[in-house]
Amino acid sequence: MDNKISGVLLSAGKSERMGEMKALLSLKDKLVIEKLIEEYLNAPIDELVVVVGFNGEKLESVIKSLFPTDKVRIIHNEDYEQGMFSSIVKGVGSATFDNILLGLVDNPLINSEIINKILKAFDFEHIVIPSYNKRGGHPVLFPKFIKDAILSSKYETLREVFDSFKDKIIYIDAPIEVTIDMDTKEDYEKILRYLEGGSI
């Protein structure tokens, strides 16, 4: 059994509601993409695939200058305008290993402690979804049969895939950070306040 894990981090969208690239916003002294990649690499995963799309060359050059390591691979999704699932398919299809930890640049507060908790709950047979107050969040971790389903062309969203395998989902209690999305300027300002010790 392949017990290695590929991280897949999606950062391909146009960030239209934000008005600028989420990945290149600053969180304290680091860029969002920098902080997230650091946190993923601080967890025991075997590689990290970052999917870029809109302004992909710019983002790739930033990532490569910050992380000159073979453990981080950058994949371009030319079809990013088709939506998030196209980036999921591209990232999952490019992953070296069968087990996938899938995260989003929209969740900038994810840290290695949260990732480790998700990894600890993984038995290589179930989907692990972190949740706070019964609300599911990211990143999610899944085994080979979900990877195969995503690549099968039968589905159009990740929710459809998970709905087909409801009996295979394990929810684990996680902190509020797993549910914090950053889609708008207001969201970004809230996150900055939170990092300064405020509440969400």
Results as ranks from 00 to 15, higher is better:
51 V>A: 12
56 G>K: 05
104 L>H: 14
66 L>V: 00
114 I>Q: 10
89 V>Y: 04
131 S>Y: 02
50 V>W: 01
78 E>Q: 14
148 D>T: 04
71 K>R: 10
124 F>I: 02
91 G>T: 01
30 K>C: 10
91 G>E: 01
119 L>C: 07
37 I>Q: 15
116 N>W: 00
36 L>K: 09
25 L>N: 14
44 P>C: 11
125 E>A: 11
64 K>Y: 01
27 L>W: 01
142 F>N: 13
60 E>A: 09
116 N>S: 11
121 A>N: 13
143 P>Q: 13
52 V>P: 00
42 N>D: 12
55 N>D: 03
21 M>I: 09
86 S>H: 08
81 E>P: 14
67 F>R: 15
26 S>H: 09
95 A>I: 02
53 G>T: 00
135 R>Q: 04
103 G>Y: 02
61 S>Q: 11
101 L>Q: 13
65 S>K: 14
64 K>N: 10
38 E>Q: 14
127 I>V: 14
96 T>D: 09
151 L>V: 03
145 F>H: 03
116 N>H: 14
77 N>Q: 15
64 K>F: 03
26 S>M: 11
73 R>A: 05
104 L>S: 15
23 A>S: 14
66 L>I: 00
109 L>C: 12
140 V>N: 08
149 A>G: 09
84 M>G: 15
106 D>I: 06
30 K>L: 15
70 D>Y: 01
37 I>P: 15
90 K>V: 11
115 I>E: 10
78 E>S: 14
39 E>P: 15
105 V>Y: 05
44 P>T: 10
109 L>P: 08
37 I>A: 06
140 V>G: 06
43 A>P: 14
33 I>N: 01
132 Y>I: 00
67 F>V: 01
108 P>C: 08
98 D>T: 00
149 A>N: 03
23 A>W: 04
48 L>R: 12
119 L>T: 04
73 R>L: 00
92 V>N: 12
147 K>D: 10
108 P>M: 03
26 S>G: 07
139 P>K: 08
67 F>S: 07
127 I>E: 03
69 T>F: 08
131 S>L: 01
104 L>P: 06
121 A>P: 12
38 E>P: 07
37 I>G: 06
144 K>Y: 04
20 E>I: 06
72 V>Y: 05
139 P>C: 15
149 A>C: 02
33 I>Y: 09
19 G>M: 06
118 I>Q: 04
88 I>H: 14
36 L>G: 11
143 P>H: 06
95 A>H: 13
72 V>A: 05
83 G>P: 13
109 L>F: 08
54 F>G: 05
108 P>A: 07
133 N>P: 00
112 S>I: 00
136 G>V: 04
127 I>H: 05
88 I>S: 11
134 K>F: 03
59 L>R: 02
102 L>N: 09
149 A>T: 07
134 K>T: 05
31 L>C: 06
133 N>L: 12
89 V>A: 07
133 N>F: 05
92 V>F: 04
137 G>R: 11
149 A>L: 02
33 I>E: 10
77 N>C: 15
49 V>F: 04
21 M>S: 13
107 N>D: 02
97 F>I: 01
121 A>Y: 01
144 K>S: 13
51 V>Q: 07
44 P>H: 08
113 E>N: 08
63 I>D: 12
121 A>V: 02
103 G>Q: 02
65 S>N: 15
71 K>Y: 09
71 K>M: 02
81 E>G: 04
101 L>F: 05
122 F>M: 03
123 D>S: 09
